[in-house]
C-alpha cells in the first residue's frame, strides 16, 4: 500500500466515522444518564433519514432553493427528538427505570420493532434518494481521486462541531453540569433536589435528535431503505461498547477507529470488511472490559 492509497483509506475512514459517531454519541449519552440501552436508537436514525429524504424530495421537486437542505436536516432532527423521543421517554421509559435491565432492553427493542413497521407504513418499501445537499457542494480531487465535498469536508466538520459543542455544554454550562451530576450519582443528585425527571427527558430528547440528525446527514449520501436502522444500531452498539458506556469523547475515538479499520480492510482485505467493527470491539473488550475509556462503577449502597 503506497502513500496515495493510505491517504485515500484515511479519508474514506474519516467520512464514514463521522456518520457513525453522530448516532453512537446519542446512544452513549442516553446510556450514561438514563442507564438504558436504547435499541430504538437505530429507528431514530432511520426516521431522520426518511423525513429528510421524503420532505426534501418533495420541496426540491417543487423548485425550492437547494440551500434549504441543511435547515431541513435540523428540522428533521428536531422532529425526531421532540415528537418521537419526548413521548417515548415520558410515557414509556419513565415507567421502567426501576425495572431490571433485561426488561428495559425488551421494551426498547419492542419500540424499535414498532417503529420499523411505522416506517414501512408511512414511507413504503421502495428506496428513497435525495442528494441535493451533496450535489450542491460538488467534488474535490485529492490524489487523483474525486471525493464529494460533502463527505470529505462537511461530515467530519459537523461531527467535530457536535463533539466540541457537547463537551463544552456538559462541562462548562450549568445545565450540562447538572446532567453530569445526575449521571455520576442519581441518588445524591436527587437528594439535593435536582429534578432528575427533567434531566432524563432532556437527555433523551437530545440523544434522539442527534441520531435523527445523523440519519438526516446520511440520507444525502445513500439510498434510504427499510432496515437501515437495524444496521446502524448494531454498528453504534459496537462503537459504544468499544468506547465505554457513557463516554462521549471515547465514542468519537472508537468511531474513528472503527471507520478507519473498515476502510483499510476494504483496501487490504475486502473479505473482512464486515467483521472489522466487531473484531475491534472484541479485542478492546478482551483487554479492557469496561471499554477504552469506561469507568468501573462501584455501587454506593
Amino acid at each position: 500500500m503506497n502513500a496515495q492509497l493510505f491517504a485515500l483509506a484515511v479519508f474514506d475512514g474519516v467520512a464514514y466515522a463521522a456518520l457513525v459517531f453522530m448516532v453512537a454519541v446519542g446512544l452513549t449519552l442516553i446510556f450514561g444518564v438514563l442507564r438504558i440501552l436504547n435499541v430504538a436508537h437505530g429507528s431514530f436514525y432511520a426516521i431522520g433519514a426518511y423525513l429528510t429524504a421524503s420532505i426534501g424530495g418533495a420541496i426540491f421537486a417543487a423548485g425550492y432553493a437547494p440551500w434549504l437542505a441543511l435547515p431541513l436536516m435540523f428540522l428533521a432532527a428536531a422532529i425526531v427528538g421532540i415528537v418521537l423521543g419526548g413521548p417515548i421517554e415520558r410515557l414509556l421509559l419513565r415507567r421502567i427505570y426501576a425495572k431490571e435491565d433485561a426488561l428495559q432492553l425488551l421494551v426498547t427493542f419492542a419500540v424499535f420493532m414498532i417503529l420499523e413497521d411505522v416506517q414501512r407504513l408511512i414511507w413504503g418499501t421502495q428506496p428513497y434518494f435525495e442528494a441535493t445537499a451533496l450535489q450542491q457542494l460538488g467534488n474535490i480531487e485529492v490524489f487523483g481521486v474525486f471525493y464529494t465535498t460533502y463527505q470529505l469536508v462537511v461530515l467530519p466538520l459537523v461531527a467535530i462541531t457536535v463533539l466540541i459543542s457537547l463537551r463544552l455544554f456538559l462541562r462548562k454550562t450549568l445545565s450540562g453540569k447538572l446532567i453530569l451530576a445526575v449521571t455520576e450519582d442519581r441518588e445524591t443528585a436527587t437528594a439535593i433536589g435536582i429534578d432528575a425527571d427533567k434531566v432524563y427527558l432532556l437527555t433523551f430528547v437530545v440523544g434522539a435528535a442527534l441520531a435523527g440528525f445523523g440519519g438526516a446527514l446520511a440520507s444525502a449520501t445513500t439510498s434510504v431503505v427499510p432496515g437501515m436502522g437495524a444496521d446502524m444500531i448494531v454498528l453504534s452498539f459496537a462503537v459504544v461498547a468499544t468506547a465505554g458506556l457513557g463516554q462521549i469523547e471515547g465514542a468519537a475515538i472508537a468511531a474513528l477507529l472503527i471507520g478507519l479499520g473498515r476502510s483499510f480492510a476494504v483496501y487490504l482485505m475486502p473479505e473482512l470488511q464486515v467483521l472489522i467493527p466487531y473484531l475491534i470491539m472484541l479485542l478492546v473488550l478482551l483487554v479492557r472490559p469496561e471499554g477504552l475509556f469506561g469507568v468501573v462503577r462501584t455501587r454506593k449502597i
Partner: peptide
C-alpha cells in the same frame, strides 16, 4: 442551582 431550580443552558 438545585435549590433555586436553575437550568440555564448557556
Amino acid at each position: 442551582a438545585a435549590r433555586e431550580q436553575r437550568w440555564a443552558p448557556f
